[in-house]
């Protein structure tokens, strides 16, 4: 292989790693929007809490990778349900803007709560033995392999749950119109809680992987990553699960490719401009459908 193609293959691999993490977070935004037509702006901070839970499990409890991941996902899921029950459920019939402001407030609360315990950036210990494979000049690390394959697995599981299980069916019914879902015998509040739990668990998994890939964490790390994942969800068509994954891969790809050819400070400028252009051309995102306003 030529040196140029090796270089680009390496970039694709790097992009896949970043995109997988964005995708896991983007799914949470999209699921909650799909079911409540609400943007859960605290979601990026749930991701951050996930990274800190990973840090705690690895340092305080001295756990290896798999238990750390499971513990983080469970903790994040509980946090997601707690946020929904305490902060969003009481506002379900309030104007949409109240819920959005509340979500921003919850995000700030999580950041400052974490800040109270960890005012300085923390170093996350290595949980995965670092092995590097040389694939004809392209290097693949054990961490990259785990991040990419684990994310893809989680996405496949989620896709199965949403498309093939009764709970997924109920979620899709609620996203169409929740007014009459109770008439089917479906407990809507429970399904909403399950949605938040799944979305937050995925963000927790993303937090764990991010903390292992970029092992210096701080309470504000969820802001930018959260925004990007949110944008990925919008680009893919918010409310659409597969769209969120596609959006994340576009976003991660563009980010890595921009840095490969331009000064790294241009990265976010190019990314945001591109996304802005895409939204102008396709306001409902790649797979999104214009919502028909029901009277």
């Amino acid at each position: 292989m030529s040196e140029v193609s090796i270089y680009w293959l390496q970039q694709v691999l790097n992009a896949l790693q970043l995109s997988s993490i964005y995708a896991l977070i983007a799914l949470g935004y999209s699921m909650v929007y799909g079911i409540l037509t609400m943007i859960n702006f605290a979601h990026g901070d749930v991701f951050m809490v996930g990274a800190f839970l990973c840090f705690l499990a690895a340092t305080l409890l001295d756990l290896p990778f798999v238990p750390t991941l499971l513990l983080t996902m469970t903790g994040a899921a509980l946090l997601g349900v707690l946020i929904e029950r305490l902060a969003y459920k009481p506002l379900r019939n309030a104007p949409r803007v109240s819920a959005i402001i509340t979500a921003l407030g919850v995000g700030l609360f999580l950041e400052n709560l974490t800040l109270a315990f960890y005012p300085y950036p923390q170093n996350v210990p290595t949980l995965i033995e670092n092995i590097n494979w040389d694939l004809g000049g392209v290097s693949l690390s054990s961490l990259q392999l785990i991040i990419i394959s684990l994310s893809l697995t989680l996405m496949l599981v989620l896709d199965y749950v949403v498309q093939r299980t009764p709970v997924g069916m109920a979620m899709r019914a609620i996203s169409w119109d929740k007014t009459y879902v109770p008439l089917m015998g479906v407990p809507v509040d429970l399904i909403i809680s399950i949605t938040f739990a799944i979305g937050a668990a995925l963000a927790g998994a993303a937090g764990t992987m991010y903390a292992l890939a970029y092992p210096v964490i701080d309470p504000y790390m969820g802001i930018m990553v959260g925004w990007k994942a949110f944008i990925a969800a919008v680009v893919g068509g918010i409310g659409n699960m597969r769209g969120a994954m596609i959006g994340a891969f576009i976003l991660g790809g563009v980010e890595i490719m921009v840095v490969a050819v331009l000064p790294s400070t241009y990265r976010d400028l190019v990314v945001f401009s591109l996304l802005l252009a895409l939204i102008v051309i396709r306001p409902h995102g790649i797979l999104g459908q214009p919502r028909v306003q029901k009277v």
Binding site: P166, M169, A170, W176, M184
Partner: peptide, 16 residues
Amino acid sequence: FGNLTVRENLRLATWQ
């Protein structure tokens, strides 16, 4: 539920 299939619409009603 327009986004669900006919089968799924019928199945959903058996939730209880």
